[in-house]
Computed example of a mutant assay.
Amino acid sequence: MSRISESDEVIAQKALRLLELTSLNADDTAERIVALCQKGLTPVGDVAAICVLPRFAGLARRTLDGLFARDIKVVAAVNFPSGGAGIATVESETEAAILTGADEIDLVFPFRAQMAGNRHIGRAMVAACKALCGERATLTVTLETGVLRDPQTIHDVCRTVIREGAAFLKTSTGKQIISTTPQAVRILIEAIAELGPHVGFKAAGNVRSLEEARAYIEMAQARFGPFWLETGKMRLGAASLLDDLLVQLGVSP
C-alpha cells in the first residue's frame, strides 16, 4: 500500500538516496563533470550515481574515488541520445567506457528502428552490450517511452530487454518532447512484476521536483513494497532534482 502520509522530508531523503545525478550535454566539459561529482556528495547524504557521456566515465570515476566516494556508481550513456548508432559503434562505446571506469552502461534502445518495424536490431544490440558488460558492469536500457508511446509496444520492448539480460529499465533520455509519464512508469513496473523481479527501473526525464519524485517512489512502493526502494532496484535520473531535494532537507543548494 502506498505510504501517502510520508512527509516531504522523508520522501526527499529517499529520493536523494535513489538519485542518479546526470549531465549528458554535448557541450559538457571536464570542469562541469568534476563539479557534478562534487555536488553528488551532500551534507545530508550522497546520491546513488553519476551519469555522464562515455568520454567522461574515467574522469568521473577518478574524481569520485578522490573524494572517497567509491560507492557512488558511474553510469555511461551509450547510443545517446538518438538511439541510432550501429551495433559495432555501440560495442566500441561500451567497451571504452567500461575500461576507463564505468560501473554501469546505460544503452539507449534503438527506438526509431523499433517504430519502423525492425525488431531485430534492438534485441541484438541489448545482447551485445550485455555480453560486453558481463560481470564488469551493470546494464541499463533506456526505452524512450515518449516516442514508443503505444502501451503494448512499450511492454513488448520491456519483455525483449528483460529477456536479453538488462538489470534496469529506464523510461527516457530526457531529450524528447515527451519524457517520463506515470503511464510509462506503470508499464515498466508491471513488466518487471511479470517477467523480471530481479530487474530494477529508472524514472528519468521530466523528474525535476519533489512531487514528481514522490509520485514515482509511491508507485514503486505500492507495487513492490518499501524494501524495493534501494539503489539496486530504483533510480531517479535527473539533472536539476537535487536542488529541490536539498531545499526540502534544509540545505542551501
Score class of each variant (00 low, 15 high):
169 L>V: 04
148 L>D: 06
26 A>G: 03
129 C>H: 04
198 H>F: 03
212 E>M: 12
251 V>H: 08
81 P>W: 13
33 I>R: 01
69 A>I: 11
66 G>W: 08
172 S>E: 11
92 S>H: 11
210 L>K: 11
46 D>F: 00
22 T>W: 04
106 D>T: 01
79 N>E: 07
113 A>R: 15
154 I>M: 10
182 P>N: 11
39 K>F: 01
8 D>R: 12
116 A>V: 01
248 Q>R: 15
34 V>K: 14
58 G>M: 01
142 T>I: 15
176 Q>K: 01
249 L>F: 13
62 R>N: 15
234 M>G: 03
76 A>L: 05
101 G>T: 02
62 R>Q: 15
104 E>D: 15
87 I>C: 07
63 T>M: 09
215 A>Q: 09
186 R>G: 05
134 G>Y: 08
217 I>D: 00
10 V>N: 12
97 A>F: 00
244 D>H: 13
76 A>R: 06
197 P>M: 09
225 G>L: 09
16 L>G: 11
172 S>C: 09
124 A>I: 02
1 M>F: 06
4 I>Q: 13
72 I>C: 12
163 R>Q: 10
185 V>D: 01
235 R>Y: 06
174 G>C: 10
53 L>Q: 14
16 L>Y: 11
156 D>C: 02
6 E>Q: 15
170 K>R: 14
100 T>C: 00
182 P>Q: 11
127 A>Y: 03
179 S>W: 02
106 D>W: 01
211 E>F: 03
223 R>M: 11
232 G>P: 06
118 N>C: 03
106 D>I: 00
79 N>M: 05
164 E>F: 01
170 K>P: 04
214 R>A: 13
74 V>Y: 03
32 R>W: 02
73 K>I: 02
176 Q>C: 04
70 R>Q: 05
211 E>C: 02
123 R>C: 01
143 L>M: 08
105 I>V: 13
176 Q>T: 14
38 Q>K: 15
104 E>V: 03
99 L>G: 00
30 A>E: 15
252 S>R: 12
96 A>D: 09
51 C>Y: 03
169 L>C: 10
252 S>T: 13
67 L>G: 07
141 V>P: 00
190 E>Q: 14
25 N>R: 12
78 V>M: 04
12 A>K: 08
179 S>F: 03
234 M>K: 04
52 V>D: 10
197 P>W: 12
253 P>K: 12
142 T>M: 05
41 L>H: 08
87 I>E: 12
113 A>C: 09
140 T>E: 07
58 G>A: 08
4 I>N: 13
88 A>N: 09
40 G>S: 02
152 Q>E: 15
128 A>M: 01
238 A>Y: 08
39 K>L: 12
167 A>W: 08
189 I>L: 14
91 E>G: 06
191 A>M: 10
28 D>P: 08
104 E>W: 08
51 C>Q: 07
46 D>R: 13
150 D>R: 10
250 G>L: 13
